[in-house]
Design a protein around this nucleic acid. Structure first.
Lengths: 225, 225
DNA sequence: GTCTATAGCTTGATAGAC
DNA sequence: GTCTATCAAGCTATAGAC
């Protein structure tokens, strides 16, 4: 199990980027963690940003493929019927969970890193992710026949955001629950997550939007005083 | 409307931090944007990190207060009854929306900045935020009488995460929907958001967790081949 | 309170020996 | 492929004149 220099660098970078974000990590820290010399990053990857991209690239295909295969399996089983919304949510989220649980520490870092990345909007990510996204949106649309297009779009966006939030591993919930819950227990988190998202989507499927006029007016009244 | 130097710095910092994150912004950029000299940041705030904290501090009380007042109003109206879950969600989210809509560009930046901050877990934020959080969790608990404590905790966590995600303003949805939706339309987003979260919470209130054994096993089968 | 000037350090990147 | 040595630029922070 001797790793190539490139892999050592990728592993260290994955871990550090996922813990602190791109800007807060220097390539010196990375090479030190990896146990290799500074110049080797530039030899193997060219620049810090290209290293970052390489880290993301390494595992992204695996995730997309898992999602697609699970979706295909459910479509097979359902025949011509639209999928149950819960199945779509499961096909989207379980691959993340699976690799997080059984992929070793690298995958744990990776899921955190990708989740962090949501605000960075890097071209790589969208280029790799959008095809999968569009397939899931299409299935969602088929399973929400009465819904306006916006509801479908927002529903998918909420699902992605919530999943990333859960895997980003800021353990707010541990503090607030005084240790009773923790993002450490990803299976528990995801069971709740999938259930929560499914119910939310079913609600959007019925075109229900909450009317916010009253609370907005209340606040306006507060701030005038 | 002449701003003090400190306010000029705070405004510039708020805007830049919210756009790029703490580490990616230098105090040189900040002072340049603010139109003041470099040394003044250290004179007024001491250090870059203290400036960051000051930016967060400036508006956080206002938000918490709004949330509390709205919650109090609803409690008044409800008498001794537990609140409808939707009311709790509205009391939590509408203040964010209100200031985002009517607070000027500073508040727009601010909501994005705080949302970004979720992964940074800064002591200030939790110290300021946790009392509000605990009140909302308590109300949620009262309105979800059959729910296990974990469901209440996860439900609240999902609400916070989803709200922050929506206000962090990465416009994934604009690309995926080919321009049909956008985070620019925050009212539309929040109407869907509140409806989605409410339905999710009601689901959790009934202690429903999704069973993920089947999809996890399917994936395990894929990866063996 | 505001300015200039600069100290002291870290950063990403590269040149060139082996 | 890997190493050492180093560059040029950028960074936070501070000292001291006004």
């Amino acid at each position: 199990m001797t790793l190539s220099t490139a892999d050592k660098i990728l592993n260290a970078a994955e871990e550090l980027f996922s813990a602190s974000g791109y800007d807060a990590v220097s390539i010196r820290q990375i090479t030190q963690t990896a146990g290799v010399k500074l110049a080797l990053v530039h030899y193997h990857f060219g620049s810090k940003e290209e290293l970052y991209r390489a880290v993301i690239q390494r595992r992204i295909g695996c995730l997309s493929e898992c999602r697609m295969r699970l979706l295909d399996q459910y479509l097979d089983e359902a025949g011509a019927e639209p999928l149950a919304i819960e199945k779509i949510v499961q096909a989207f989220i379980t691959p993340y969970l699976f690799w997080h649980l059984h992929g070793g520490s690298g995958w744990r870092s990776y899921s955190r890193l990708v989740s962090r990345l949501l605000m960075h909007d890097l071209d790589i990510l969208t280029r790799q992710f959008n095809p999968t996204a569009e397939r899931f949106i299409a299935e969602l649309r088929r399973s929400m026949p009465a819904a306006r297009e916006e509801s479908v779009q927002w529903g998918f966006d909420f699902m992605v955001g919530l999943m990333c939030n859960t895997f980003s591993e800021t353990d707010r919930i541990a503090t607030l629950s005084h240790g009773q819950c923790s993002v450490e227990d990803k299976l528990e988190a995801c069971q709740n997550l999938v259930s929560f998202i499914t119910a939310g989507l079913i609600q959007l499927a019925a075109n229900r939007k909450s009317d916010l006029t009253d609370p907005l007016e209340s606040i306006a009244r507060f701030t005038e005083l």
